[in-house]
Design a protein around this nucleic acid. Structure first.
Lengths: 146, 146
DNA sequence: TATTGTTATACTCTATAACTATA
DNA sequence: TATAGTTATAGAGTATAACAATA
């Protein structure tokens, strides 16, 4: 008996699989400075010149605030990001890339797309289709930036 | 200046993001028995009636063998899988689902696709397209089952 | 000699609970 | 009273190196 949702199930399996198979590949992109997958992701999420409150990071990562504290501690210790107190609400701390963090982030992005990687095996049209579908996947639960 | 690989970069970002945003959702699927994301994934990877050598699991997860030892210890402690010595090569240990593991695996698969989840927001055609593209992504580095 | 899996060790990741400081 | 972030704690995830058993 073939279920209606076979494709959904298969897609889910492949998405998870993609992540776990790429995990080890990922930090090797930043061979110079050892970064864990989550740390790479955080660096990726913080855009240059656009501060990100810690609470928003916790929501985006779907994790507890206490976890973000540790993550930020380590990235700050590496000199890649820094905490800044928000003038509007003094409880809030916003994260910003340091020059070094900004540089490493660009480097990461460059390497991810440069290499002979799985994504390179797709045609440009397929990449576009993939992006469109994934963006639809996120339409409703992108971080509520309130 | 717009790079040629903008879509690849965007796709990569979205794929990582999908994983991190789904992480917390995932174990709540197995609300009764607390399983971590990796544990869910391992349970997903071991198909009923089809034994999997530990070394293959390490390759599929792109992680060290010592890590698999710990993962398997915990899943075995929960009574979900079991180690069996391979008769052909006595160094090898193969993993098999227990009846309980098999039951939980089905339950997981069912819940993943049943719920009002991101994947449900795609049209059937989009799900098919997504699966096709992701499968192509894996064409060359599926586990070499030697 | 090379490979499979384990152990010991040392991190990082993660959640829970209790806390401080703001609002 | 509620929210943002921290601390303390405990456990899971992960890699490295050294090891045992087998090939």
């Amino acid at each position: 008996m073939k279920r209606l949702d076979d494709d959904a199930s298969r897609a889910w399996q492949l998405l998870m699989r993609f992540f776990f198979s790429q995990r080890s590949h990922l930090p090797s992109c930043a061979a110079d400075i050892r970064l864990s997958p989550v740390q790479c992701h955080v660096l990726h999420l913080i855009e240059p010149g656009q501060a990100m409150p810690m609470s928003r990071l916790a929501r985006t990562l779907s994790c507890d605030a206490s976890n973000v504290t540790g993550l930020v501690d380590r990235l700050e210790r590496e000199g890649l990001i820094e905490r800044q107190s928000s003038p509007e609400d003094r409880r809030v701390k916003v994260l910003a890339l340091t020059p070094a963090g900004s540089r490493l982030r660009s480097e990461l992005l460059r390497r991810v797309t440069d290499r002979p990687q799985p994504l390179a095996r797709l045609t440009p049209e397929e990449r576009k289709a993939l992006v469109r579908i994934l963006e639809k996947l996120f339409d409703q639960h992108v971080e509520t930036s309130d």
